[in-house]
Computed example of a mutant assay.
Amino acid sequence: MTSTQTRTTVAELAGAHGPFVSLYLDTSGPVPDAAQQVELRWRAARRRLAAAGTPERLLDAIEPFTRRAHPGGDTLVVIADAAQVRLVRQLPTPPSVEVATYGPVPHLLPLLRWEQRQLPVLVVATDRIGAEIVAMQADEVDLADTVTGETLHITRSQPGGWSQRRFQQRAEDRWEANATLVADRLAELVDEIRPRAIVVTGDVRAVQFLRDTSSPRVAELLHEVQGPYDSTDAAVEQAAEVVRRLADADVAAAVETFQRERGQADRATGGVSDTLNTLARHQVDTLLLVDDPQLLARPAYTGEKPDQVGATVGAVSALGVDEPVPAPVGDVATWAALATGARVVAVPTDLADQVPDGVGAILRYTT
């Protein structure tokens, strides 16, 4: 059995029905026998999944993905529901811990942690003729574009006498016209892709013309990176650092909002019990989970529906569930958040003291 649903987004998984297979398989290794090492890891993971009760048909459906995982990435992520493989991803870094579980809710936080750092960004290498543009999108194929303007009188000449100023002005006008073409194309891509940043490099004067000719909504996204870059390749590497800073700022802003709302006794709650209760009531706008496996492995309870969650059997029974089942609190909370349209933020451990018990929520409304 193969899947036609492997491009499902994490949010779209909320409509699936468990139990679920969650596999994070280490597929790294530049050594000649890397493929054989991946096969051995998969065999070990398959035995663990089989022992947990995973149907053979699901294991058979997952196996083809493991065979072609190397060298596609360093972590193979597979999420399968009761019927089929629903999601497959290849992540560029090895997993901190390999995961192979079969349970009532999927294990999604490692994937969400990676996705929250994959912000869409445009990378631009510009010169006085035009620009090369790469649109880097989370979990999408990168798009490449080229904008080329006119080259007539593009180089400043140095004729003597009264004509010098006229020739130089003509070159300046052409550079600016070409920069306008690039700015117009960027405006189109901003509307299409909604990037968090536009990382630009290249000829200093061309960059300045681009900044001057861009609309405010484009100009506010521009991040200039310095260096001897004559193509987008090196700029893409620099863009990774820009994206990292933006992603870190997003997390810090979410934690700051959480702290502010808690301080005002307003739209925030913390701790396992209170947070799960607000998830059950669909109150949560943003779920914060400290990225600590020990904290998130503590038991919580859930029913057949993702929003039937609580810290105790009694709390879930009160929601009309006859037989609540245990599952790690991190997985229970994440699953409920996705099902109710909440954002999930993985909080680094250096901010753990800002989120009590490692679990908290910014609320849509208070009761």
Rank of each mutant, 00 (worst) to 15 (best):
T269G: 02
D203L: 11
V251D: 10
T269K: 06
R205F: 10
V200P: 06
G227Y: 02
L221K: 00
T286I: 02
G227K: 03
R260T: 15
D212G: 02
I193D: 05
V251N: 04
V272A: 06
G271A: 09
A235R: 02
T213I: 06
F209S: 06
T278P: 01
D292N: 05
A206F: 11
A254R: 08
G263S: 04
R211T: 08
R260I: 13
I198G: 06
R205E: 10
V207R: 02
L295A: 01
E220M: 05
T232G: 02
G271Y: 13
R194G: 04
R245G: 08
R244G: 13
G227T: 00
F209V: 06
I198T: 07
Q226P: 00
E237R: 04
L289P: 01
V242D: 12
S215M: 11
D292A: 03
A280S: 09
A265E: 10
T201C: 11
D230I: 14
E237L: 13
V236W: 06
A249N: 13
V243N: 00
A247V: 10
A234M: 13
R260C: 13
L221F: 04
N277H: 15
F258Y: 15
Q294P: 05
A280M: 02
L221R: 00
Q294S: 05
A219W: 02
Q283C: 11
D285F: 03
L222Q: 11
Q208E: 13
L296V: 07
D285P: 12
V199F: 04
V290L: 04
Q208S: 05
G270M: 08
G271C: 12
A253V: 14
V272C: 11
A252Q: 14
P195Y: 01
D230F: 06
A234G: 11
R262Q: 07
L287T: 03
V272M: 05
A254P: 08
R245F: 12
V225M: 15
Q208G: 01
S231P: 08
R244E: 13
A268L: 01
R211A: 04
S273D: 15
A253Y: 12
A240H: 10
D285M: 03
A234V: 15
I198C: 07
D292G: 02
R260Q: 12
R262Y: 14
A234T: 12
P293V: 00
E224Q: 14
V225H: 09
P228L: 10
A235T: 03
T201K: 02
A265T: 09
G271K: 09
E256T: 12
E224A: 11
P195N: 06
R267E: 15
S214Y: 06
S273M: 14
Q294D: 12
L296F: 04
D248A: 07
E220G: 00
P228V: 07
V225I: 10
A254T: 09
Q208H: 06
R244I: 15
A197Q: 11
S215D: 13
H223G: 14
A253S: 15
A280F: 03
A219R: 05
Q238W: 09
T269Y: 13
R217T: 14
E224L: 10
T275N: 00
